[in-house]
Design a protein around this nucleic acid. Structure first.
Lengths: 199, 199
DNA sequence: CCCGGATGTTGGCGTTGACTACATAAGTAG
DNA sequence: CTACTTATGTAGTCAACGCCAACATCCGGG
């Protein structure tokens, strides 16, 4: 064991350390408060070290966002699995989990849905895809069980996803009271099930 | 007429000019590209002049957002009035107008729903209120006409607003293809009307 | 007429993102 | 073991920015 003097020339895990520090700082103080130089200080490296791992500030933010999509996908799948077999219960679990995540990590959400990545749009889409697929698979369950009417699952999925996301976004933007969050999410699901239900 | 030499000491309308320049720059290059110094240059004043009207950068962004709420409210009301008497048609007009505005002025929308105003949250809420009220009034029409079932209008309104907003946000974030925008908005309204319709 | 508040200017401080040149570590082939 | 190569971190610099304070100019009411 090479004597962790904290003075090794190479950090050994800088990229991950920077992302971790960034995530915490973002959660506490917002994305705008993220500074490459400050992160470098937090981690204990020189101000230009992050450049080896993130060519510019935006690319760090992008990595953060992609991480976010992966984390939320994990949480969503766990929640759906935990919710049992009932279709509506599963849908509510997904919605609640999403809105809760999105309000807990508001800064991260803002990053994930930021429009500052015309370039890497495909990377973001790929990162988000698993969760979209999860929702679409769930909706298909609903159709097979006869709870939902037939229809273009992808479009319906986007609309429902948009509703979840919008509820979270409005809450984060202080345009909807936080204590309504849970109720709104449930109302949304119930209306959706009636609206997309078999006639 | 006092010889517009463009060399008057006082600009005369700096605040409005700054906001106008900011709005255009934001639309073209995003909010992050907004710099007080650059705006000052665009308008032809010294780099510290904006400070007289906006104590700091955030307060300019706030003013921009409030302007946005006012503009969208105007557009929404015009669209609803223009849509005739049919409830669903009016609702669709509102939704289409909102999503179109929100995708055309994506940067502005990001500002309006940004969560960087824990302080002035009430100012933002007040700015957004008219449009919320517009939607709620419309929903009440629906209830009176018997198209919608009874229910808590405020909550239902937030959910529908969230759906509109979410569709716009996902489109702006490149997570939904732009050419679906119109179709998604209509699907959302149709499902909503079925979901919140009389049983 | 002048005086005070409103508005704009000049200069400057500290921080940041980005860039370049250099230093050190780690891996690999001879 | 050594020499070469690549990955990673350091040091120094630059232009731009936000914010601040001191000064200049304008304008309207006493």
């Amino acid at each position: 064991m090479p004597a962790e003097t904290d003075e090794r020339y190479h950090h050994g895990n800088l990229r991950a350390a920077l992302l971790a520090a960034a995530e915490q700082t973002a959660r506490e103080s917002g994305v705008d408060a993220l500074s490459l130089r400050d992160l470098a200080r937090q981690v204990g490296v020189s101000h230009a070290a992050p450049r080896r791992h993130f060519p510019d500030r935006q690319s760090l933010l992008d990595a953060l966002a992609v991480n976010g999509f992966q984390r939320i996908d994990t949480e969503l799948r766990a929640a759906v699995a935990r919710a049992g077999d009932d279709f509506v219960a599963r849908l509510k679990a997904l919605t609640q989990t999403y809105t809760r995540f999105a309000t807990r990590d508001a800064a991260l959400l803002e990053l994930m849905f930021s429009r500052k990545h015309g370039e890497n749009a495909d990377v973001f889409l790929a990162a988000a895809q698993p969760s979209f697929t999860l929702l679409e698979d769930l909706l298909q369950e609903g159709q097979v069980q006869g709870v939902l009417r037939e229809g273009p699952i992808d479009q319906i999925g986007i609309v429902l996803f948009a509703t979840m996301h919008g509820i979270a976004a409005m809450t984060n933007g202080h345009l909807a009271p936080p204590d309504l969050l849970e109720g709104l999410a449930n109302t949304a699901v119930e209306q959706f099930v009636r609206g997309a239900g078999r006639a």
